[in-house]
Simulated scan of single mutants.
Amino acid sequence: MKKICLSVLGLYIGMLAAFSQDTSQYKSRKLTFEEANFISSYYNQNGNNSAVTGGIGTEKLTDLSNSFEIKLNMWDKKERKHTFDFELGIDHYTSASSDKIDPKTISSASHADTRLYPSLNWSVENGKKGTTFGAGLSVSHEFDYTSFGMNVLFAKKTNNKSGEFSVKLQAYLDKLKLIQPVELRSYNNTYGENDYPTASRNSFSTSLSYSQIINQRLQVIFLADVIYQHGYLGLPFHRIYFKDGTESVETLPADRLKVPLGVRANYFLGDNIILRGYYRYYRDSWGLEAHTANIETSVKVTPFLSVTPFYRYYIQSAVKYFAPYEMHTSAEEYYTSNYDLSKFTSGFFGAGFRLIPPKGVFGIQHFNMLELRYGHYQKNNGMQSNIVSLNIRIK
């Protein structure tokens, strides 16, 4: 994993050196380097409500995530700005609960896995008309899951440039391997990687937003999404233990409609403090209803160093098909013991430190920004997690 990260970072520094030689002030019609970001994070969690073992058992998991992004731009003959955004992500996780899919083996196929997810997005902005059009493609692959994504975007500024409306359409076409618990498999246990049966899952969404500058201190943005999913929407290795002692895997409807509505606000409280607030209401066709409230404060300690403490509160109801371990009956049409679909409340708090010195971090001119963040997450059922992330920006 370290070799991969260092290779990506080396590639990115080499590209920076090539593009940063163009220091002219005119609008270049050649592809020019704008900025690059390298983000690395470490996540760990623990709990005792694993869906793999029917709602009981360890949820211990660790994940190391690395993402590299580079943005390039150019201007065409009509003075429109074209931006190309390429991102490559690599995650590697280990999961004790997934290892229970086949507890007789030393390590099952899902005990540890690596996910690779490149994406490419393009947008063209017409400053005179105040319009932006964009499109993108993405791929995500791991051992038992492959996803292909595509999106289109249109945005239009108001006549006075103080507001902007945008609409984004997205589609994800997924294929997953039906890796069932070992004791429930009807196919040969001595299989190769391509011998698992498969199923599809497709997601389509429309995202609407309107942002408005109210005055010099206050900015707001209103958000609305409509998301429709169809296909195999559960996971084939999530066990269900019925009241009569029999066993199966979770079964969920093949359709799900989600509607989240949200609002964000940024308030500039003087020169050194920014307050950021966020609220979201969510409801779906499975009966889940949720509220999210988030507050973050950015405090400028020095002209180059800022601290950003944050707190997020979340509460949700359970879906109609959830019940704990050995509480379902086999007469039910749909059932799950996945505690992500249960009723719970959670809190997430932490802080970030951002350094943006005018001469560059450590005196390196193009090393524009260094940010370190830590967050602690906890559910009221005892599940806890921690995440540490590092963000490096080059301009």
Results as ranks from 00 to 15, higher is better:
A199K: 04
A155L: 03
K30G: 10
K177M: 07
L61K: 14
M1W: 13
T32C: 07
L223M: 06
Q316C: 08
Y42V: 09
S20K: 08
T94K: 13
K100W: 01
E125W: 04
T336L: 04
H291P: 01
I39L: 13
F38S: 06
P358I: 09
I90H: 06
D76G: 04
T308H: 03
Y43I: 09
G89I: 06
I392D: 05
P236S: 13
H92K: 15
S211C: 04
I179F: 02
S65M: 08
T23M: 15
G350N: 08
S209L: 02
K168R: 14
E371N: 11
D99W: 00
L305G: 00
G55P: 11
K128M: 10
T32M: 09
N202Q: 06
E296A: 15
S337Y: 01
Q216W: 01
S248W: 01
Y311G: 12
W122T: 01
K343F: 04
Y191M: 07
E142R: 09
I364Y: 12
F362H: 05
F68Q: 04
T302M: 01
R185Q: 14
I392V: 15
V220W: 06
I101V: 13
E247I: 14
I13V: 12
V307S: 00
T292R: 13
G57S: 07
G130M: 02
G360Q: 08
Y314H: 12
N49E: 09
D195L: 01
A112H: 13
L116H: 11
S28Y: 05
V226C: 13
T246G: 14
H238T: 03
L390A: 10
N73A: 13
T105V: 11
D102S: 06
S330T: 02
G360R: 06
S97T: 03
G57V: 02
G375P: 01
Y43A: 09
Y313S: 07
R80E: 06
M74R: 14
T292I: 13
S203F: 09
I106Y: 10
I356K: 12
N37L: 04
Y313V: 10
Q212W: 10
S110Y: 01
N126T: 02
A254V: 08
I106P: 06
H291F: 10
E35N: 15
H141Q: 15
G10C: 11
N188L: 09
D284G: 07
F143S: 09
I315N: 13
Y267A: 04
S337T: 05
E296Y: 04
L120Q: 01
S107V: 01
W75C: 03
K3M: 13
A17I: 12
F348A: 07
A199W: 01
G14M: 10
D76C: 07
V388C: 09
Q25R: 14
F237V: 00
T58G: 03
A224H: 08
K30E: 14
Q45L: 05
V299I: 08
L11N: 08
T23Q: 15
R239F: 00
R373S: 07
H366S: 15
Y145T: 03
E59Y: 03
Q45M: 15
T32D: 11
F133I: 14
V226L: 15
L137G: 11
T345Q: 14
V139K: 15
H328E: 08
F154V: 10
L390Q: 06
P236H: 01
R283N: 12
L275N: 03
L153F: 09
